[in-house]
């Protein structure tokens, strides 16, 4: 690579100069009085900047690719919860596992990462991916396994006592085998959307969030991807971060027309829902869009 060559170049130049201009009594009692050279200085400044610019562009392009799941691909969603000192996984299909993560080959796997305590970092060296898992927020990471096999993962962010044992393995299996595996649910495990619907029902969300008119809260069908206009005139396209905020901090942004005394009438569900429940609920709300296609 470029940087390796540059390093060799510096070593070689240094070695050559040190040998070529070694002190030899009677030959060179003192150094030549070479003045500086503005041309050289400007030259190597520009050259360095150009080379660095090229490396930056390559790195940024690769980084940008990881920011969004490629359009038009089927996505397998998995919730990843880090806690001292284990990794817990919950598949979109409902299965849960610890320290081992089964994934299908040839499909995009999107991890939603969060933490129950301190900062962890989910790191799969073979896939060249890493993403911190933070308490109180969700980060995402996607990869696609291309060859069946097992790939170690580890926690890369120091998190206390047993940090070095917070490791596990990804088992990449053919898609059909994965689908079959996914069906072997334990009692109590159910697909995420169904689990999310239960959370929705358990907390009586439908009492206010209903599709019928004259309810005190905005309807939720087809919400993700739609533009929302708020009390203060601001607007955004609803995404998962916005949904999350609306559940945990309803008064942060109130949809125009729904404020009561400048605030949302909805109570905060921070501390009420567990990480898993929140993930299930948000997953369910996303499927609401898929079910109806577009908004009302």
């Amino acid at each position: 690579m470029v940087v390796g060559l540059a390093t060799l170049g510096v070593f070689a130049t240094m070695g050559y100069f040190v040998w070529r201009y070694r002190y030899r009594p009677g030959v060179n009692e003192t150094g030549r009085d070479v003045p500086g050279s503005t041309r050289l200085e400007v030259g190597w400044t520009i050259a360095t900047t150009v080379v660095f610019g090229g490396i930056f562009a390559l790195g940024a392009a690769g980084f940008a690719e990881r920011q969004h799941v490629p359009a038009g691909r089927d996505v397998e969603d998995v919730l990843v919860v880090g806690k001292q000192w284990m990794w817990k996984f919950q598949h979109g299909g409902g299965r849960r596992e610890i320290a081992v993560l089964h994934v299908p080959v040839g499909r995009v796997v999107r991890l939603s990462l969060t933490s129950e305590d301190v900062i962890h970092s989910f790191y799969v060296p073979a896939f060249r991916v890493k993403q911190d898992a933070l308490p109180g927020r969700t980060t995402t990471l996607w990869f696609e396994a291309t060859t069946p096999g097992t790939y170690p993962f580890a926690c890369a962010e120091y998190c206390g006592g047993e940090h070095s044992r917070m490791v596990g393995q990804i088992v990449a299996m053919p898609a059909e085998a994965y689908d079959a595996w996914l069906e072997h649910r334990e009692p109590g495990e159910m697909p995420l959307a169904a689990a999310g619907r239960e959370v929705f029902a358990r907390h009586d969300c439908a009492t206010c969030h209903d599709t019928h008119a004259n309810k005190p809260a905005p309807p939720l069908e087809g919400l993700v991807g739609r533009r929302r206009v708020f009390e203060d005139g601001a607007a955004l396209v609803a995404d998962e971060a916005y949904l999350r905020e609306s559940v945990l901090e309803p008064s942060a942004r109130v949809v125009a027309g729904y404020a009561v005394a400048g605030r949302s009438p909805m109570p905060s569900y921070a501390g009420v829902l567990t990480n898993e429940e929140l993930f299930e609920l948000l997953y369910y709300l996303r499927t609401l869009k898929d079910a109806t296609g577009v908004s009302r």
Binding site: V10, T13, M14, F17, V18, Y21, R22, Y23, R24, N28, E29, T30, G31, R32, V34, S37, L40, E41, W44, T45, T48
Partner: peptide
């Protein structure tokens, strides 16, 4: 830039 200048300082020296 600093590294290049140090190398250039070696040039023509009596090291």
């Amino acid at each position: 830039i600093k590294v290049f200048n140090w190398l250039a300082t070696l040039y023509g020296g009596a090291i």
